[in-house]
Nucleic acid binder design. Structure first.
Lengths: 345, 345
DNA sequence: TGTTAGCACTCTCATTGGGTGAGTGCTAGC
DNA sequence: GCTAGCACTCACCCAATGAGAGTGCTAACA
């Protein structure tokens, strides 16, 4: 008993219907709503086979059937292979970003909002990874007589800033020359490397040892500091019947609250352009009946960020995939183009 | 029929019990658990009076009674007047902040977390208001040949940064001298004033008109830009029986998602140190059975931020008030002390 | 041999109706 | 003024009932 064309068509119909209604679907429904040219009895036989093959589950004997994770997997794989993902018009998405600030956090936040309102699921947007970020420019700006703001410009345009103490008074000019020296020394290095360089510098330049040490600490802090994770559409989730149970909502919500964990769940893609993880595939007990679809976008420097959508396993994969596609492309354009224009000069 | 001492004591007991159990409380419970030296029948009579006075509601005839908004108002007012708010040990709170970065956003986020975990309600922390923020220092940092990062240091230590385009190439030295000129011109002025000054400067300095114009726009953007609002403990809310209804959770959640609105609800305090708004007093339909307790904290420069807690009307006001008190003080210290030490030099 | 009609069977869900318990209001007595 | 006692009212729980949806199986049909 293998998987023939007809079984596939029936399974497809069941999944489509279940995605729509969230109710177990019966043989009669299929034969009527999706005209297969088959009677309910025949479909019943096929459904029985599909259940034995592991593609369908039956909540109880006298209910219809619901697709299993395995069924969704098949469904999604076909979707991806078949290239059946409808391509959306990019303009609608683009409109949400034009005329806005280009600051990283703003774009990220906005993206999460747009993503959630387009899909009606929970959207997560992670900024480009910071492991390989390289320093471009370091600048000290006097804030008061005993503290200065450190601004580090990196090659992804991300700016890390923090205030540090300086023990003895340093005037604006002195800070400026230190800034130049730091830029010369650190430019082109990653944050990790910079930390080592700063330690070395601190040993050699006793007069500014303290300053350099705190700079080193600051850089170290930033390498581990969780970056800003944008989330949108949490309340969307509550519109789905699978979350009519408060306990489930609670689980999901506390997952969303711990941004670090959320980020690691969404970002778990081996730099493949798009990943779909269905229910148990997530490996997270709380998310056994959630699917996570994620895509990567990249900045001009090759840094990769992640956008993801979390929804019930019966989510509208086709739509989500196309929205993620267009959105990833859009973000790549946005982050790439910003610098692309600069490079032209 | 007025409010005598005994009625007050009974009302107090009812509120205390209801805060604890969230169940309508009956006359028998009061006479037994809180020994008033009165029989249930007597208490029944008093409760009947209290209901007529508008302090109690009855869900249905054979249930106990629950406190009305008016009752909570009385309760809270007595709490505030009587100075009965237990003062907590500040050290426990302080421990959460020591050894951490002093960057505004980090502190704000952390504060929301601590506040929610101490109260078990939803916590909101707003950064110091930016209406009266004055500029201290402006610095242009080269990012690429055609763009520069603008850093504006304000007197609350908040740093606004954004990348702007520069049409013709300006080297590091030129940018530095422009920075100095800008600092001289704008230092001490509010963002609004600065916008006007920049417009004026753009007219007089044709060569840098474009740069100055975009700077002006940027400053303008930032005056309206919603600032970072920290929220913590959303999932806490779901532990309370009043939110066992998914629809209510949904309403609350979508309120929390629109940070602007949330901020305006929490911040609606006429610069009084602490405000309690009970249920309908919020004037927000979605929050008819929520109370909002908020307190202000201030930075060394007199800027005021707000911390707030949102919970069911039957929240533990006494605890919330004392936690907010200690937390506000703590934040004030944190933001004040940072600069306070600088001032000493 | 595959398809279909028919039928008995199973199980959920919504409804109904009595029983229980918590709480009240009222009255009469202390 | 307080309290004991009592009738009364509901919400809630539980079991029984019936309708409806869907299945599996069998037998007939093309």
């Amino acid at each position: 008993m293998g998987m023939d064309e007809r079984k596939l068509r029936i399974l497809q119909a069941i999944i489509d219907d279940y995605i729509l209604t969230a109710e177990p679907v019966g043989s009669r429904t299929i034969s009527r709503k999706y005209d297969m040219g088959l009677s309910s009895a025949t479909i019943r036989n096929e459904m029985s086979d599909l259940e034995e093959l592991g593609y369908l589950d039956q909540p109880h004997v006298s209910a219809g059937r619901i697709p299993s994770a395995k069924a969704y997997r098949l469904y999604v794989d076909q979707l991806l292979e078949g290239g059946k993902i409808p391509s959306l018009n990019a303009d609608a998405v683009r409109a949400h970003f034009t005329g806005r600030g280009h600051q990283m956090e703003e774009v990220i936040d906005r993206a999460a909002q747009v993503l959630s309102s387009m899909t009606h699921y929970l959207a997560v947007v992670l900024p480009p990874g910071s492991q390989q970020v390289r320093i471009r420019n370091v600048q000290l700006v006097p804030v008061s007589t005993e503290s200065a703001l450190v601004v580090i410009v990196t090659d992804v345009g991300v700016v890390r800033d923090s205030v540090i103490r300086i023990s003895r008074h340093l005037d604006s000019e002195t800070l400026y020359s230190i800034s130049r020296a730091l830029t010369a020394a650190l430019s082109g290095h990653t944050l990790q490397e910079s930390q080592a360089i700063l330690r070395e510098m601190a040993r050699n330049m006793e007069e500014n040892a303290e300053l350099l040490a705190s700079l080193g600490n600051m850089v170290g802090d930033h390498t581990v500091k969780r970056s800003h994770v944008a989330v949108g559409g949490t309340s969307n989730m509550l519109t789905y019947p699978e979350y009519s149970d408060v306990e489930k909502v609670r689980n999901l919500l506390s997952l969303v609250e711990t941004r670090d964990r959320l980020a690691s769940i969404v970002a778990r893609n081996g730099s493949v352009s798009v990943t779909v993880r269905i229910g148990p595939e997530n490996g997270v007990p709380e998310m056994e009946d959630c699917s996570v679809v994620s895509a990567v976008y990249s900045t001009y420097s090759g840094q990769q960020g992640t956008i993801g959508v979390i929804g019930p396993t019966r989510m509208n994969y086709s739509k989500v995939l196309s929205v993620l596609g267009i959105m990833g492309q859009q973000l790549s354009e946005l982050f790439g183009a910003t610098e692309g224009q600069d490079e032209k000069s």
